[in-house]
């Protein structure tokens, strides 16, 4: 399974993504205000913050859904090349810079089989091999070979998350946690350099959450991919992140290892509010307890 394993880098944790002075304004509303941080290869970088802190907006800027008002987003390739993401269209970012993302809601193709979901993600190389379908129809050699390679890669990932026995079922029929993991491995089938996951643990039970952690650590350690993670579930964040960036009201208030961030007074204040402990929304209160405990 050589295709699935990224070429080893000289420095496994080389800088992958530089976000510099990113700002995003919608009319008078400042959603992100001068945020800078760095993400590295083979590291999990978590972006956390209370609701409305601008986390998803950062993702939308990175993946071309929004054009940032100000700022530079630089993606580095192992060969030393760079892509300026703020100047690229969404699907070009996906295909050329190879930034893959998942969304807060599940965006699988529900009426296609699990395996087909993964093969569509390998569309580019398949289409090249099939010279746009006509030869595919007549099962030409190059196409058959490319198709087999695509299926092999898909099977490799399905084995990884234990979904191989259900490869031919409709993706929409899988349990929720399995759909979440399927989305992540579908993104991995595009062979990304940077994997952006928007709240992958939302709605998962503890067992599913643990399976998700295993998958993310596997992606980091075996494939040396940089992962950018938005997450509310602090058990996930504190357990698997190498690096945490905390946003609040669109500004970066803390940046460091999970241990550093946890003890940063600014973070505690952002989660607690100044002196309004009684009015805490329940999920924030839970998050806070986890932070303080962990």
């Amino acid at each position: 399974m050589t295709a699935a394993v990224a070429a080893p880098l000289r420095d496994p944790a080389a800088p992958l993504l530089d976000v510099e002075h990113l700002s995003m304004r919608f009319g008078g509303l400042v959603a992100i205000d001068d945020v800078s941080f760095q993400a590295r290869n083979a590291q999990i970088t978590a972006i956390i913050g209370p609701n409305g802190a601008g986390k998803t907006t950062v993702f939308n800027c990175l993946t071309g859904f929004y054009k940032p008002s100000v700022g530079r987003l630089t993606l580095r390739t192992p060969g030393g090349g760079t892509y300026l993401l703020e100047q690229m269209e969404g699907h070009r970012i996906a295909q050329h810079a190879r930034v893959a993302r998942t969304f807060q809601n599940i965006r699988l193709f529900p009426r296609m089989s699990v395996l087909e979901n993964l093969i569509v993600a390998q569309h580019n190389k398949l289409m090249r091999a099939s010279t746009y379908t006509l030869t595919g129809l007549f099962a030409a050699k190059g196409y058959v070979r490319a198709e087999r390679a695509a299926v092999d890669l898909a099977r490799y990932w399905l084995d990884r998350i234990g979904l191989s026995p259900r490869a031919d079922e409709d993706a929409g029929n899988l349990p929720y946690g399995a759909q979440r993991r399927l989305e992540i491995i579908r993104a991995m089938c595009t062979e990304p350099r940077l994997l952006c996951l928007d709240e992958p643990a939302a709605g998962l039970n503890p067992r599913e959450s643990a399976e998700l952690n295993d998958l993310l650590l596997f992606i980091r350690d075996e494939h040396k991919i940089g992962v950018l993670l938005i997450e509310h579930d602090m058990t996930v964040v504190m357990k698997i992140s190498d690096h945490v960036v905390v946003l609040d009201y669109g500004r970066k208030i803390s940046d460091g290892t999970p241990a550093e961030v946890r003890s940063d007074p600014a973070v505690v204040r952002a989660y607690l509010g100044e002196a309004e402990e009684d009015e805490l929304p329940p999920e924030v209160a839970t998050d806070l307890q986890t932070i303080v405990k962990a």
Partner: peptide, 24 residues
């Protein structure tokens, strides 16, 4: 059975996602 057919079904179900996954 073909890549084209698969792409058509993918576009039908979620065009934006299909584009992000590299479908033309």
């Amino acid at each position: 059975g073909t890549a084209l057919g698969r792409n058509q079904r993918a576009c039908e179900q979620d065009m934006r996602m299909a584009r992000l996954l590299g479908v033309d």
